[in-house]
């Protein structure tokens, strides 16, 4: 457990650095696989993967302490916001059901989900900003999970796309707010909480990521329904369906 403390500090250092760099507006950058992307049907069926969300409270010292109650609320609010968003677009959401733990299906599907994590990492590393751009991906967005992705839909094959959502958000505690105020008085910049996340839409036939969006936002609140809806509007901006 000694390691956990050190890791969290690194994480916060990074998050604070982003907060300082990014400024006051929500930033999203979306990638579409191709400009000519057309949905497979007028009412597409989307497999909604369990959203990976964690909300934390920033202590006075700026360390993020995850909060179970806020996270549970955010999961509910984000779920409702996505449902509302998709209803307006005539898309049907199907909740992903994980197969029984330790079954061969579970192993296979977990590998696909992990592959999505690795692909997501690659997109975030190389497609946002010039620092780490790959010449081979310069003018195209060509990321896929391969045809093995069909395992996610299972035997039913009831969905044409899968939607992955990842969000991390932190909120200044009262003590942190006090530090920020003291800081203002003393002329020292002290960052507050930050919301970061991404969403990706995967074609369940080819495995291609047909749409990908990253969100960085110094404000926003997932703990209550209306601001959560706003975050989802931001996150799913330019959603292709």
């Amino acid at each position: 457990m000694a390691r956990a403390v050190r890791r969290r500090k690194t994480r916060v250092g990074m998050v604070l650095a982003i907060g300082l760099l990014v400024g006051a507006c929500a930033q999203t950058i979306a990638f579409n696989k191709s400009a000519e992307f057309t949905p497979s049907s007028p009412s597409p069926r989307i497999l909604l993967m369990p959203a990976d969300i964690e909300l934390s409270e920033l202590s006075a010292a700026g360390i993020a302490f995850p909060k179970a109650e806020w996270t549970a609320a955010a999961i509910d609010n984000v779920g409702a916001a996505i449902e509302g968003f998709m209803a307006l677009r005539n898309a049907t959401l199907i909740a992903y059901q994980a197969p029984p733990a330790a079954s061969p299906e579970a192993y296979l599907q977990n590998q696909i989900i992990k592959l999505h994590g690795a692909v997501g990492n690659a997109v975030l590393a190389h497609k946002f900003g010039p620092a780490n751009a790959l010449p081979t991906m310069r003018d195209k967005f060509d990321y896929t999970l391969g045809e093995g992705v069909r395992a996610l839909a299972g035997d039913r094959a009831m969905a044409e796309y899968a939607l992955f959502v990842y969000l991390r958000d932190s909120y200044a505690s009262g003590e942190r707010a006090a530090v920020m105020i003291f800081g203002l008085l003393l002329g020292v910049a002290v960052p507050g909480g930050l919301q970061i996340g991404f969403a990706s839409l995967v074609d369940l036939e080819s495995g291609d990521i047909v749409w990908f969006n990253r969100l960085v936002n110094p404000s926003g609140d997932l703990r209550t329904p209306d601001p959560a809806r706003q975050t989802i509007e931001n996150l799913l901006a330019d959603f292709p369906l």
Binding site: L21, N132, I196
Partner: peptide, 22 residues
Amino acid sequence: IMNMRGLAMVVTLATLSGCAPY
């Protein structure tokens, strides 16, 4: 899906401008 450290690190890398190593 992926760990926070990875995400935070790559987002930081992405927002820093500088010479591309590739």
